[in-house]
Each structure stands twice: as C-alpha cells, then as structure tokens.
Simulated assay, not measured.
Amino acid sequence: MKFSKATNYALHTMVHLAMEPTSEAVKVEELANRQMLSPTYLSKILTKLSKAGLIMSTPGVKGGYRLLRAPEDCTFLDVTKAIEGQESLLNCTMSHDGKWNKNCLIERAMSDVEDKMKEELSHKNIAGIVKQAENREKEN
C-alpha cells in the first residue's frame, strides 16, 4: 500500500508545528524550507489540514500556521483522511450477468484489511513522534 507524498509532507508538517512553542505561528515558507518543498505546493496541503480542523491559519505579518488540537489528539488517521479523503482502497469492478456484485469477496477482504489499518493509524499520534524525536535529540 502506498500513500501519496502529500500525506508524508502533511505528517511531517504536523510534527514541525507540534514542536513549536504554542504561542508562535509558523510561516508557510519556513515549513516548506524544512521539507525542501515549494511554498505553493505546501499551501495546498495546509489548506486541507485546515479544512479538516487540524491546524489554523493566522493572516498578517506575524501570521502563519499552528496546531488547532493538542498533538495527542492529532492521529495519523486524521491527517491521512484530511489529505487522502475517505474513499476505500478498493471498489469491486466485477459484474455478474450485467449487474454489479454487491457481495464481492475480494472487496470484503480488502475492507477488513483497511479497517485494521485505520485502527492502527488511529493509535498513532503526532505527540508520539514528537516524543521520539526529542528522545533522539537527547541521545545525540
């Protein structure tokens, strides 16, 4: 399975924002530079995260982006849904006698796998990654 690069960038952006002091907004240019991205491209990702209620945008000279929720409340599943949407990984394409098969066994099997993946992603949060990053910095 593969998620888009946008999901990867969104997760990294969320970690960067979580590591900032809570009172400070981070400019899109700074977030883009940290990941070597175009600010225009990252802005599209930030818009999706904002619409999903994960971050907020503050306009103006001192404006920028900050988390809207605590890092503990931002799961990988939340971020993935914000970027990738809610569409299932697989929708059955087979038809029988000209009718779509509503009980496709392959689709059911893939749905079970997808449910397990969503469960795992819902247990991983941004705070966990921040803690691991801080521990790594202490070790070095």
Rank of each mutant, 00 (worst) to 15 (best):
K2G: 06
K2H: 10
F3Q: 06
S4K: 10
S4Q: 11
K5P: 07
Y9W: 15
Y9D: 03
A10Q: 03
L11F: 05
H12P: 00
V15W: 01
H16W: 01
T22E: 11
T22V: 13
S23D: 11
E24R: 15
E24I: 05
A25H: 06
V26H: 01
V28W: 03
V28F: 03
A32I: 02
N33Y: 06
R34C: 06
Q35E: 07
M36H: 12
M36D: 13
M36C: 04
S38L: 09
P39T: 07
T40W: 08
T40I: 14
Y41H: 13
Y41E: 08
L42T: 02
S43F: 02
L46H: 05
L49W: 02
S50Q: 15
K51T: 13
G53A: 11
S57M: 09
G64K: 04
L67W: 00
R69E: 06
E72F: 02
F76S: 02
V79E: 03
T80M: 08
K81D: 05
K81M: 12
I83T: 07
I83S: 07
Q86T: 14
S88P: 04
L89P: 04
L89K: 07
S95G: 00
S95P: 00
H96A: 10
D97F: 12
C104A: 05
C104I: 04
L105E: 14
L105A: 12
I106C: 01
E107I: 03
R108I: 10
S111T: 14
V113K: 07
K116Y: 10
M117P: 01
E119L: 08
E120I: 14
L121E: 06
H123N: 13
G128F: 03
I129M: 10
I129P: 00
R136W: 02
N140V: 09
